Simulated scan of single mutants.
Amino acid sequence: MGPCETFHMSACRVPRRLTSRRRLTLLAAGAAAASLTLSACGDGASGGSAQTRFVQGKDGIDTVKKDERQAAPDLSGETTTGKKLDVAAYKGKVVIVNVWGSWCGPCIAEAPNFAKVANETKGKGVQFVGINTRDSEKSQATSFEEEHKVPYPSLFDPTGRLMLRFPKGSLNPQSIPSTIAIDRHGRIAARSIGPLAENELRKMIAPLVAEK
């Protein structure tokens, strides 16, 4: 599996014996599935609109005003080490959600930055959580975590289902890696698409830590 791939679902051929109505239903479903794409190892491109209501920062970090933020979706399941985890349990903290894969070059590059900042901001009410995706075996993810001394848990999401839970028009993850910042009230506050340098990661976190 190489970098810079795209998740996609293609519409299947419809058997001739199906009725016209059934054929149209299946084709419509296939088209809808095909529209759910997620780029791997993205280049960081993103944009804002009146519908999404977020501001695209010059540093690549998109933000949303406090009164326009949407609630984060249900991000729960089993971690790479087999434990149960529900991100909602961290409400009251600033939560940094990093989408990554052990096979992704940019994820490897940013891993030391995330480990360092996670350790240094833990005492300030910041909780890091990973979402590991496109790794078929948990052992691939845990080897990555051990090698890069990742100090926080990651949900194991090989098919990318958790990323599709983000509400339409929100700052949703669109590439691997992507980083989502959730405020103390459980709302989506900021996003970065692509790898983050240490100073960029701190710049994403600092305003949310300062919020009352």
Score class of each variant (00 low, 15 high):
K65C: 10
P195M: 08
G123N: 01
L75G: 11
K58M: 09
P207S: 00
K138T: 11
V126S: 04
S102D: 09
A118N: 11
R184H: 02
N199L: 08
G194T: 09
I131L: 13
L36E: 15
P112Y: 03
C41Q: 09
I131S: 10
S46C: 11
R134A: 06
S46K: 04
R187F: 10
L18I: 01
A28T: 08
G42W: 01
F156N: 14
Y152C: 14
A206T: 09
P195T: 03
T142R: 11
F166W: 12
K84T: 12
I205Y: 01
K65H: 14
P195Q: 07
L26E: 15
L196E: 04
S39H: 05
T6K: 03
R53A: 01
R22H: 13
L75E: 06
G92I: 15
A29E: 04
K93H: 08
L18Y: 07
H148V: 13
S170V: 10
T79A: 14
I205M: 12
L38G: 11
T142E: 03
G48A: 12
M204V: 09
A29Y: 04
K138C: 04
R17K: 06
P173V: 00
F166G: 15
L85S: 08
V150Q: 13
E137H: 06
T121Q: 13
I61F: 06
